[in-house]
Amino acid sequence: MEKTVNHKAWFLVLPVLVLVAFSAVIPLMTVVNYAFQDTFGNNVFFWHGLGWFEELLASDRMWNALWRQLAFSGIILAIEIPLGVLVALNMPKRGVWASVVLVLMSLPLLIPWNVVGTIWQIFGRVDIGLLGYTLNSLGISYNYTQNPAHAWATVIVMDVWHWTSLVALLAYAGLQSIPDAYYQAAKIDQASRWKVFRYIELPKMAGVLMIAVLLRFMDSFMIYTEPFVVTGGGPGNATTFLSIDLVKMALGQFDLGPAAAFSLMYFLVILLISWVFYTVMTNLDKRG
């Protein structure tokens, strides 16, 4: 049967468009609008042109936060993706234990961000925290409130603790979709464990792993609550990531103009990287 083309059906999505415009598009446009203005309160605004963008681009503050953010996302991806795959490879494939492990693995994902932050904030404390107290008792000097390296280590381990299971679950789903015939063929060819992984499991997991990378990148690039609860961006500015810096600027100092300009640049970077990931993903699918 010939399909009729009727573009009038597009009008049916109009209510959604209005809703999205009201809750997302117009607020975003407002941010763009504020980025070019200055205010001293009382809802009185003055045109400031490109001033805020120029100031931010020349200041170390935004660049430092951006490098910290990129470093953080890079490090957690470099740990979580291989670790998640390793965990998935060792998870039981069927039986009661498969279900038990699945439930256990999904537990960290159910804990709200601020609770994870609080857990680690207390866990790492030198006076009452299990981790902090034990490490110091063993003679290892550890204090995440004073030492930037320790603060970084704490925030990274916390993120790995919270999110590796997401990668593991996604990789596990990818592994489960591989038919047994592939493994049997590999066995007949006397393929080594590494070759099975390299030529069967990894290519079959590539799609879900790309999704895992995209999800983890996006989430870690926008991370706010966990490091804010644990370190508050400190010591000094050592763990002040982009969103923490942005909130300091927008709500702490109430600098609407610079914060709006900052948000836009932040948004553009996220948009660019997400587009790259999305394009790579869809092209992998097409070749696939």
């Binding site: 042109g49 490109l50 001033g51 120029e54 681009l57 020349a58 553009l268 948009l271 660019l272 587009w275």
Partner: peptide
């Protein structure tokens, strides 16, 4: 169009950072 608009945003920011607002 998307690639053009996104790229243009970065070109404008880079230009602003390097050359300053007067040359925008």
């Amino acid at each position: 169009l998307f690639i053009t608009l996104l790229g243009s945003a970065f070109i404008n920011l880079a230009w602003l950072g390097v050359m300053g607002a007067a040359m925008q």
